[in-house]
Simulated assay, not measured.
Amino acid sequence: MKIAACQMVSGPDLAANLATARRLLEDAARQGAALAALPEYFCLMGMHDSDKLALAEDEGQGPIQAMLATAARELGLWLIGGTLPIKAATSERVRNSTLVFSPSGGRVARYDKIHLFAFDDGRESYDEGRVLEAGGTPTAFDANGLQVGLSVCYDLRFPELYRGYAGSALLAVPAAFTYTTGQAHWELLLRARAVENQCYVVAPAQGGRHANGRRTWGHSMVVDPWGQVLAVLPEGEGVVVADLDPARLAQVRQQLPALGHRRLG
């Protein structure tokens, strides 16, 4: 199965972001991808964190979800829809949600980001908890017999989440890593999650300078179960495609059966 990670430099214009996402998904399909993933906040990187509140959709309806469902159906893709704001229990918060659609256009999974990012190095600071409500349920889905575990961005720093997906063929990590943290830790953590769980990782990211002044690290990539980076895009819009090979997955797990050697957890 060919899998694709789409990289974007999203801005505050919803329609423009959706059009870019559709174009990149079409490119992924042309390259033979059966599964494609969009980055975190693919639909909006606003001027302020609170901008996403105005675009929050009810679960199951809205223009963002409609675009994802239509793209999956028309392009015949398993589509991991990055993240979009879904209304939470209070109007002051939203869930940062990954929705997954099958090639028929039906929604097959929803994952709400569990770990909320906070960072302050004296020059730049972020606190997602100001507008996001954390999820609490790990979620996986089946794509043509391959289990895919879902996560988002900052989740990458919490290996216990991924241990719950042990045995999965693929882990998905839509992200918008800051340039600072991405430069230091992005590839390191992605390869670690692939190696320790002996699975593929697809990591679509935001990658560039955004209208709000923020710079994201990019480096969307696909990593194999041995920790090898199969494809990467450093910065800017684009698509990277690589093969998820079940035979390679089985080979790694057979020659080093670490998952069967676990004694804790």
Rank of each mutant, 00 (worst) to 15 (best):
C43M: 03
G46T: 10
L68P: 00
P39G: 03
P39L: 06
S50G: 07
L44A: 15
E57V: 13
C43V: 10
M47K: 12
P63G: 06
L53P: 01
A36H: 11
E40N: 14
A36F: 05
A66D: 12
M67I: 02
E59A: 10
D51I: 04
A66T: 03
L68C: 02
G60E: 11
G60K: 13
L68D: 00
I64Y: 01
L68W: 01
D49Y: 02
L55M: 12
I64T: 00
Q61K: 09
A34W: 08
E57G: 12
P63I: 03
H48V: 03
M67R: 00
L44G: 03
G62T: 08
M67E: 12
L35Q: 01
L55K: 08
Y41W: 11
M47W: 15
D51P: 04
K52E: 13
D49W: 05
M45K: 11
A37P: 05
L53I: 04
D58N: 13
S50Q: 06
D58R: 15
F42E: 09
C43R: 01
L44Q: 09
G60L: 09
I64R: 00
M67Q: 01
P63E: 13
A56T: 10
Q61L: 08
L53N: 07
D49R: 10
K52S: 08
M47H: 07
Y41E: 10
E59W: 04
Y41F: 15
E59I: 01
P39T: 05
